[in-house]
Design a protein around this nucleic acid. Sequence first.
DNA 1: TACTTTTGCTTGACGGCCGGACAAAAGGTG
DNA 2: CACCTTTTGTCCGGCCGTCAAGCAAAAGTA
Lengths: 399, 399
Amino acid sequence: MTSIGGVAPSGSSGAGELLRLMLDGTPRTRAELIKMTGLARSTVGARVDALLAAGLLTTSGEAASTGGRPPARLAFNPDAGVVIAADLGATHALVALTDLRGRVVAEKALRIDISAGPEPVLDRVARTARSLLSSTGQGREHLAGVGIGLPGPVEHSTGRPVLPPIMPGWDNYDVPGHLARAVGGPVLVDNDVNLMALGEHATVYPHVEQMIFVKVATGIGAGIISGGRLHRGAQGAAGDLGHVAALNGGDTPCTCGNVGCLEAVASGPAVVRALRERGVDAGDARGLVRLAKQGDLEAAAAIREAGREIGHVLATCVSLFNPSVIAVGGLVAQAAESLLAGIREIVYGRSLPLATGELQIVASRTGGHAGVIGAATMVVQHVLSAEQVEHHLAEAAAG
Amino acid sequence: MTSIGGVAPSGSSGAGELLRLMLDGTPRTRAELIKMTGLARSTVGARVDALLAAGLLTTSGEAASTGGRPPARLAFNPDAGVVIAADLGATHALVALTDLRGRVVAEKALRIDISAGPEPVLDRVARTARSLLSSTGQGREHLAGVGIGLPGPVEHSTGRPVLPPIMPGWDNYDVPGHLARAVGGPVLVDNDVNLMALGEHATVYPHVEQMIFVKVATGIGAGIISGGRLHRGAQGAAGDLGHVAALNGGDTPCTCGNVGCLEAVASGPAVVRALRERGVDAGDARGLVRLAKQGDLEAAAAIREAGREIGHVLATCVSLFNPSVIAVGGLVAQAAESLLAGIREIVYGRSLPLATGELQIVASRTGGHAGVIGAATMVVQHVLSAEQVEHHLAEAAAG
DNA sequence: TACTTTTGCTTGACGGCCGGACAAAAGGTG
DNA sequence: CACCTTTTGTCCGGCCGTCAAGCAAAAGTA
């Protein structure tokens, strides 16, 4: 397996591609793999051996015999490594340890102040990550990588925030360098909403090619899956729906300095404000959701009205993008019925039948964990890419 | 080269990938190819030989000597085959014969009536295609393929129109089957605006990853390039901007049955109508453009106002998509200054700096040929994909 | 017990790619 | 003119991955 000529061998083992077939989690027999890949028995046997030796595959019982020796079932082994996944907001952070399937094994919520700057915040995240690793008995050699979502635009290829509006001191900071030193492994960074989209897509809609994930909380943002892959845009700024002009935005001032932004009329704080003007004091967004869940009609109506405003923007997105699924998450989406009702009312009424015919508008199913699940998914997709697996196996064989 | 076991050989020659490097048109020496690919001299030599034998590469002079034998320059040979490209509108069609670079060699404009149904229209296109082939002395053996753009949604994988609003009788019609029988070769079909986006991208912005092409004519539509590839959407309905709600759409009735659509206030006919209400009769969209080019202030103002309406919708698209380029084409865009001014005014004023910082909003450079160039590009990208080239070379070696 | 099915392992063959070697081509230099 | 340098074009032996085929073992069914 060691490369003789020093040049990368072009006829690589191909075990990585075989592993990718198994990443959906369904166990398969060797015979099924032979059928799926079209490879020879001997080839599949050799690749399965390599993956079993690396611990990336395990045997999981036997299938029913059809008259002879029962075939052994092979399955992807999600415990071949662990991932540290973190989802950072303005005031809260969630740090989790997941398996290679993106399932949360252990987690810890932190109160943070993102405006304190990158060093103190990332140091606390790193400490929490190390304690999660040691409390679950995982050494650093089991760590496959670290994924982290930040509440602002990120240049994914470098892992650096770019001009984030609510993260003073973070602009162009080397997040991967810091976390690699403090925790280890490859470190991948992205915008938090992008990761929520990635997580929702990977765990709930793996076969959907086009979808939009909308987060409605303090801000409003969207993550876009195009052709089964995350669409990040030219500057990593795609999905920034918060500062689109709302239909009835009027002169409502927005934190961005402009007026009439969607975020100024349909975000959590905006709905709380609108409700206060009607004489109902919900306190904050959390209180708003509580009221709505208790059946308060005023709160439900206000949330539904926000849904309509969001729906007008999403109608344009539907016409432009033609997704099959719109998933809505974020704190306000916990009062899902009202919000979805408002969104659906406008989107289905306003878009063309061809685009809405097979469109589902649904609540997020990953709930509050969408961010960390997405961060873990991002790491797993990187680490278990065909090239990375080939590389790993080659090193294991050489060492 | 013939496959012994009947199974596709996985260790294929790889000449296709080498050809892909040459598709940008720049001539290169063998030494440069060796550096770029990292392959051995002998391997590059063998692949170049195969491509030279197939006519896909040609030698194009010598480079400067650095003291010894001057290296021979190799270049992609765009005359290794021809493509029939057709762009169909409601009343006009353009049929062209292009080389493998997408350059139009010969063309013919037709008056058609798309509502006459697929058979008579496609038969006329096919007759024109055959006459273009014979008049340029090209036999069917030189035909690499046929590409055709239709004014409605198309399921690209099957080449069948899906519920097209202005093409009665075309729904689910087997366009590729008909044209393959009547002309020959592989036949690829797509929406006309998608093809305009593809053509503009391939010929003017080949390295741009995210862009939007907007066509403003009788209707308004957009083609989207995401990650360097065409984004078609879940039902092939992506980019349908014409029936998005315009900001000042009011109750203006639209042909789709809804009110306030962008197409109802900013398309060519809509601007002509608005102008007539101000007492200026431009006749049709062509007359409108003529007036604007002659310096008529009323016409320019009306077009600019249409640009503003389009700009409001595009501002949302920019926030959602974060493209690097928006190219504007179609008949009305021939009065580019006024239209672009209106679009820029709103988009740059309304979107966030991060998204607009490197955004170019420009007029289409492919002009009236965008559609056929895109159709040709679609065929070339298919025919010269690595797999197709491998296949072609293998057959040539076997036969 | 005989048969079937699946696995694990081995063997011979083939094709792609590598590295090296050598001749030819084309220009510069003494 | 002879000689050197650089690059190309071509050939050859060898390595590696894959394939097809075969055989023994395992484990269940008839």
